[in-house]
């Protein structure tokens, strides 16, 4: 490679490294704000030493604990408990739930922290995992039976 090309190549690579370094620093500075949601443990125990205050708006993501979903007979009010590894956060919501909402499903809720472990949600989003398989295989492997939302018993 002749010297001029070499200097151009090093120039281009140097620019790339500088930009990558700058972006790395920006991202690591922002890293706590880059997460889309807090986990229930982070809501209760705090994240990086700051526990969310009551009345604060936040997003919480966790798994719906089976058997905790309660529905109001008269309205669209629904309540359920979220967890990740230990602490449990109760969520109250009024509105339509996404099709994927099921017990044991990953859920992200947006709302206000009403008590230390109670979120009044105004939006509920379902998160699904990266595994795709036909229903028969899922039943065999995971013991999960696919239930259409309208046939759900809870």
């Amino acid at each position: 490679m002749n010297p001029r090309r070499k200097s151009r190549l090093t120039g281009v690579l140097a620019i790339m490294l500088l930009v990558a370094g700058a972006i790395y620093m920006v991202l690591s500075a922002l890293s706590e704000n880059m997460d889309m949601f807090l986990t229930p443990s982070e809501v209760i125990q705090g994240k990086n030493g700051t526990v969310p205050k009551q009345g604060q708006r936040l997003k919480v993501g966790g798994m719906v604990i089976p058997g905790t979903v309660t529905r109001d007979e008269e309205s669209l009010k629904v309540a359920f408990s979220l967890t990740d590894t230990g602490p449990v956060v109760r969520v109250e919501y009024e509105g339509l739930l996404p099709d994927l909402f099921r017990e044991g499903q990953g859920i992200v809720v947006t709302g206000t922290l009403a008590a230390a472990d109670l979120v009044i949600a105004d939006e509920v989003l379902a998160k699904h995992d990266e595994e795709y398989m036909p229903p028969e295989l899922a039943e065999k492997m995971k013991g999960i039976k696919h239930v259409k939302p309208q046939d759900a018993t809870y």
């Binding site: 281009v12 620019i15 790339m16 991202l27 993501g61 998160k127 990266e130 795709y132």
Partner: peptide, 28 residues
């Protein structure tokens, strides 16, 4: 030059689902 600088974004897109909590699921 702009195209080359933008390459930095590619690993960020790919690993975004591992580095941060996202609604999007991980790689299959």
């Amino acid at each position: 030059l702009m195209a080359i600088v933008g390459v930095v974004n590619l690993p960020i897109i790919h690993y975004s689902v591992e580095w941060w909590n996202t609604l999007h699921q991980g790689a299959s």
